[in-house]
Design a binder for these strands. Sequence first.
RNA 1: GCCAACUUAGCUCAGCUGGUAGAGCAGCUGAUUCGUAAUCAGCAGGUCGCAGGUUCGAAUCCUGUAGUUGGCUCCA
Length: 637
Amino acid sequence: MSIAVRLPDDSLRQLPEGATGTDLAAGIGPRLLEAALAIKQDGQLTDLKAPLRDGAKIEILTAKNEDSLELIRHSTAHLLAHAVKRLYPNARVGIGPTIEDGFYYDFWVEKPFTPEDLPVIEAEMKKIVAEGIEVVREDLDRDAAIARFNEMGEPLKVEVVSGIPQGDRISGYRQGDFYDLCRGPHIPNTNKLKAFKLLSIAGAYWKGDEKNQMLSRIYGTAFHSQRDLDEHLQRLEEAKQRDHRKLGKELDLFSFHPQAPASPFFHPKGTVVYNALVDYIRELYNKYDYKEVITPQILDVSLWKTSGHYDNYAENMYFTTAEEREYAVKPMNCPGHCVLFGSTKHSYRDLPLRIADFGRLHRYERSGVTHGLTRVRTFCQDDAHLFCAPDQIKAEMASFLDLLKEVYDTFAFTEMRVALSTRPEKRLGSDEIWDAAEGALAEALTEAGVPFKLNPGEGAFYGPKIEFQVLDALKRPWQLGTLQVDYMLPERFDLNYTKPDGTEGRPVMLHRAILGSLERFFGILVEHCAGAFPAWLAPVQVAVLPITDRVAPFAEEVGAKLRAAGFRVDLDLRNEKVNAKIREHQLRKVPYMLVLGDREAEAGSVSVRHRTQGDLGVQTLEAFLASFQAEVAERRR
RNA sequence: GCCAACUUAGCUCAGCUGGUAGAGCAGCUGAUUCGUAAUCAGCAGGUCGCAGGUUCGAAUCCUGUAGUUGGCUCCA
């Protein structure tokens, strides 16, 4: 008996029955056999050593295939566990999945691992690779697996297997003296693992539940080649160089102090950027017909009880008391806006009413979760609430999309990912209302030609939401914008508007933000542009650098003219060589430097140097002013 | 909040197994007036996060505490 399988080039190959991927690869050629990592049978990933099915379409995976990278990482996770078990026989293994960019493995150990342990473990892993141990699949039925893991003293594995229905078979893999529960597939031999690195250690709750015990997790990554690994490590290094916390300090943008944990102090330079962001959004609010308001910081608890925050959000709120009356510092603007909306009578002609607010918010965050500017305890959002009639949702969504695209384009966030989260199990409102809301959002996205992903059941209980993600210069995703449909707050605050027929209607509220938190956006932007802000945002836009004291008066004149034209100027009159001045302003990423010597003073011209383009030559001050003015006015990237 | 690590001059960092603090840059002073990424010299600057403890003696060891960092849980 023999079987036939079809290769990707559509050719048929006859093999004896029971033949495996290894046999197939060997039959084709020794180099393929050497490179083969796994096979795909009719699109399904399996071990190289799995028996081939008659008539199946077979693809042999090598390092060239995308899918095989995950395979490598998964097998490296096993390799890690194998090494740990050799070095620390008392360690109990948890789970070891692949993640984006690598893998991790959790261990239950008496004493958590330390960074010094990593090189030792890594060396042991390399030893196991050098030993070239075969990786073989050994399936067991559930009860046998429980017995085996009990015998091995692996309670966590027993727990995992116990979750599998009785009678099912579980798959496992053995490499030498190490056996692990695993769905597979895996590479055929440990010697296929050539490039890996252990990166860090962290505590992690068993099954991600903080009520469970804390395990010691080791993170690592693996690639097909040392070159790919090096490249990845270099990307990590690049990310470190761009870290907004590092750049924030170096560029004198902001700082943090123990007196106000997780709450940024923006320095003059950072404040310039921050305000420029707000000014920009404000300008668009005019264009898109929003009304900006300023609302109180501290409001009576009764308001938060009405809004539902008191019951659902209290652990993130700050409270305060005065004259025996209890207040809360606002964590969100929406209840205040509801107060505003409800304070006067509204006609359908008033809708949509777009209320914007840059109010400062305070949210208590648990101490371990804060991070630089991206997760803070006080921030403000480019927040607005659109009060509209139910049939206006779609149009509002469409207009918001335009606004959003305009903004992201300005900041050179060229890639956007959109997700629509729909009704969850537990929700407010009738199915008809949800149908209409979800439909309106989806339609608006479709009509705008915006592709989106559906997250069924992920919506808020008060309405569906859309989340907008951008990719930064290092291709890292960040969620910035959001639009949430809310039926609950108008209900809770009993908001009404008079419809054309004279009856009262309930408005819908759309919560929306473009940049999200300004603090967070600031941090992301710093990393996105590596601290080199576009000219319109740069804290110092032009540095004026006289070469000698003789031209100081001329430099002051140039500086004054630039300032009069509305620019942020650093007039550098220090007794330093031009080279030193240039170097310093270059390191501070100042977009333009004007080098002024006797020649310029004589001719009334300026010698322009751009931070990336270098020496642009001499021009008249007027010419420079005009072109620079245009660059700033257009908010060129 | 949980696990782990870190905290030395304004910044970046040295300081081996405990013997009482050091560099570069920044700052200040002086000299130099020098055309596209660092001019030279001098001076000054720290109760080694904070509070206890061990010790003849602590930046170094122990305990507690604060902040930060990497994760977990949570989240803009």
